[in-house]
Write a protein that binds this DNA or RNA. Structure first.
Lengths: 292, 292
DNA sequence: GGACCTTACGGGGCCCGTAACTATC
DNA sequence: GATAGTTACGGGCCCCGTAAGGTCC
């Protein structure tokens, strides 16, 4: 069975004529006719009814078109993937980290080895881990120290790249408008959607206290901290954002931390690497990042 | 690119040695070595590092093992599917119908053409439609006349096989224990899970009235009417079951209909056939069933 | 008879196995 | 020197194209 055959078969299913399909496949009609027979032999099924003169394609043939096309696509996908992984460093990172940490990491690596090329695949916490196990590369993600990430695979190396903090912040403008924050006050909150990693961290660490002490009004939910950040800057409410993401705004006073009142979450920033499946570039990058 | 190559590649990835893989693939080591090169050529990627003496498989090779295995499996799946569809009539039917109507249909067809073989794939309403569009065969399903099933594809033929009814029933034993049913009474109800087709039918047609007039106590949920039937027979409560499914029990008095009090739902029983993808057997069966 | 497909036949390329060679351990 | 893998070479099979032979319209 050959890829060529599958493509032949597709031509036949599309052209619905042996002669035309043969032309499209750049072989003579007899040769093509023989190929069709080979395919039928392999499948053990008669695909065409040769009784009529422009041959009639049997239902069973028509029914398999989608599967055949899928198979052909997968072949080329395999090749493309091999090419892509050839000389590239793939980062799989939680959305937040792909915005906050990854840019700096890429700058650092580029400074040391200028011609490196990169691919960044953002996903949510769970998606990251699956993607990493499936595709390899480097995984950058948060870890709540209560729930350590433990891969069962032996050959996965780990480096801790320090900490980040989920800080409750509010825009200067809104802070002025709200005045001093007191127990029982109504607080407009922007949250991560329930069930997500960040939402769970907050649900465990900060929210019980907040719900006890204030009247929480959920203004908006979004899974993307970059989007929440915009909303906070637009004075829509209070959100817990990664400190790395709002460094500048904290320094210039555009955002004000409410950590003392609402509590924060400390997160480990971890980098993982499947050592046995990483190419040299990836391995080098892994060690390089660890040494920064 | 050939299927053989993929299998060669798998052997290499598993054995991690050209000599051993060659043995397993029943070719001489030089021949196998050449094949590996061909595969590498096609992929455009060096899979093995030939610098060391038992060759070293590069990470990129290891990383693609899962994809290659998947591809190989799909090849054989294609062939199996072709075989299976060869001389078989596939029924795709909602769980309930696969228990209630399908057995009789199969008996009827067998009576007329004894050597027919069948495959029955039960699914829920939505799953049925997807499966049917993907796999073909004959689709047997309920239709609530409020929400007609309309396939966009032109070549899908439809026959109505009469009606069925969702009747609220209770076991004789429980009926006696409960005594006469009066408004405001507590009713133990067995239901289909929310969101499913049958649950929606009931939610639209019967439940509003029932909830208004009685104190409903949800004893148990199950998507399978056969399972609900057992529970009803076990006097666990009242459920709406397909009349076709409980014909015998209604006649011998084991189950008692509460239709007058709780309302029933009329359903169309429809049979669909993708005419352009159906083999002769399927087409014949379709017409045969229509004529019963 | 013509369109469409299959069968027959000779030629060439591809791939195999054997054997000789090379390199790593 | 043994093990592991590549290169060289001759042979055979498989598949192609040409040409001739059937069938259905």
């Amino acid at each position: 069975m050959e890829l060529k055959w599958l493509e032949d078969l597709l031509a036949l299913l599309e052209e619905k004529s042996i002669t035309r399909a043969a032309e499209r496949r750049h072989v003579t009609q007899p040769a093509y006719s023989r190929r069709v027979k080979q395919i039928e032999d392999w499948l053990g099924v008669e695909l065409v009814n040769r009784a009529t003169k422009p041959v009639n394609i049997r239902p069973i043939g028509l029914a398999m078109e989608a599967d055949v096309r899928d198979l052909v696509n997968r072949f080329y996908a395999l090749r493309n993937k091999a090419h892509e992984n050839q000389n590239k460093i793939t980062f799989i990172a939680q959305h937040t980290l792909s915005v906050s940490r990854i840019p700096q990491i890429i700058r650092d690596i580029n400074a040391l080895s200028p011609k490196t090329s990169f691919r960044v695949m953002p996903a949510n916490n769970n998606g990251c881990q699956n993607l990493f196990l499936k595709e390899g590369g480097l995984l950058l993600c948060y870890q709540n120290s209560n729930q350590p990430i433990n891969f069962t695979q032996a050959s996965i190396a780990k480096i801790k790249l320090g900490n980040d903090y989920l800080l409750p912040v509010v825009s200067r403008e809104l802070a002025i408008k709200m005045g001093p924050i007191k127990a029982g006050m109504r607080l407009p909150i922007l949250m991560y959607p329930k069930g997500g990693f960040l939402a769970e961290c907050l649900a465990q660490m900060c929210l019980p206290r907040v719900f006890r002490d204030y009247r929480v009004e959920l203004v908006c939910e979004s899974a993307f901290s970059a989007s929440l950040k915009e909303k906070v800057l637009g004075s829509m409410g209070i959100a817990w954002l990664a400190k790395d993401l709002i460094q500048t705004e904290l320094e210039n006073g555009a955002l004000i931390s409410l950590e003392d009142l609402l509590g924060s979450v400390m997160l480990d920033v971890l980098l993982f690497c499947k050592e046995d499946e990483a190419n040299d570039q990836v391995t080098n990058a892994f060690n390089m990042i660890g040494s920064f």
